[in-house]
């Protein structure tokens, strides 16, 4: 059987909220060491990669590897039943046809249970090669979210440049061109590999979808290398990571 209990169920709710506009039906892999999920959006431009380690759960048991095909759209509807401070338990039998979700408040006097039907999905698993990212930056997730939203009003595409002393987000649209440059000497942002600079362009529409995860973590890590998809990574406190990959835009 499989059973995983999180004391703070709103974390799981936030994760589902943060991926539901990108991916619809996904396979969640439950193994003795944790839960993971990898899925692409329908246009194959973005990919969601989630890993939650068993250590982060209050209780975790998974006797054998299970693939749980689930509609994220429907799961998001069920997550509306999770209130602030509720714990959440996910459980199912070994040959499951549904996933049971149990939410309980702190006083233990209110319990909500819902069985979500499972679906069979063709898995479309992509192998992500080992990549040495030449440019990495960690910045305030709220600031990154705000910046992407504001730039989207001006342009569909943003060019990222990460260098020794700054990170620059440049846009060019019908109304003109401009950029936001953030000095990395401030505590909020820092480059780990300062000697290299990479410039890559990305669709802001996707970045705005990724930013729905900003409430999961105060910080977001951006990783880039030449001619490689961008990685936007949020650490889920003591549980694991939620990573988004975004294919770049190229000029022919």
């Amino acid at each position: 059987m499989f059973e995983a209990k999180l004391t703070d169920g709103t974390i799981f709710k936030k994760i589902i909220e943060a991926i539901k506009d990108l991916v619809t039906d996904v396979n969640i892999d439950a193994t003795p060491t944790g839960l993971s999920l990898q899925a692409m959006d329908s246009s194959h431009v973005a990919l969601v990669n989630l890993h939650l380690g068993m250590e982060g759960f209050e209780r975790y048991r998974c006797d054998r590897n299970l693939t749980l095909g689930i509609s994220i759209t429907n799961l998001a509807k069920v997550m509306k039943l999770v209130n602030q401070n509720d714990s959440i338990t996910l459980k199912c039998e070994d040959e499951p046809t549904y996933l049971t979700i149990v939410c309980q408040n702190q006083k233990h006097d209110r319990t909500t249970q819902f069985n979500v039907n499972l679906i069979t999905l063709d898995s479309e698993h992509l192998g992500i090669p080992e990549t040495e990212y030449t440019s990495e930056i960690t910045m305030n997730s709220g600031e990154f979210s705000k910046l992407c939203k504001e730039l989207y009003a001006l342009s569909e595409t943003v060019e990222f440049e990460i260098s020794t002393t700054f990170v620059k987000f440049a846009v060019e649209g019908e109304i003109g061109s401009g950029s936001i440059k953030i000095q990395t000497s401030a505590d909020e942002a820092e480059t780990s590999r300062p000697e290299d600079t990479v410039k890559l362009s990305f669709a802001l529409r996707y970045l705005n979808l990724f930013n729905k995860a900003y409430s999961l973590s105060n910080q977001v890590k951006l990783s880039m290398a030449a001619e490689t998809p961008l990685v936007v990574e949020y650490e889920v406190e003591s549980l694991g990571t939620l990573k988004y990959y975004l294919a770049p835009k190229i000029t022919d």
Partner: peptide, 14 residues
Amino acid sequence: QGRQTTLQLFFSGE
């Protein structure tokens, strides 16, 4: 604004 690539260009199918 450039052409949007897809992830299959960079990642391999399994």
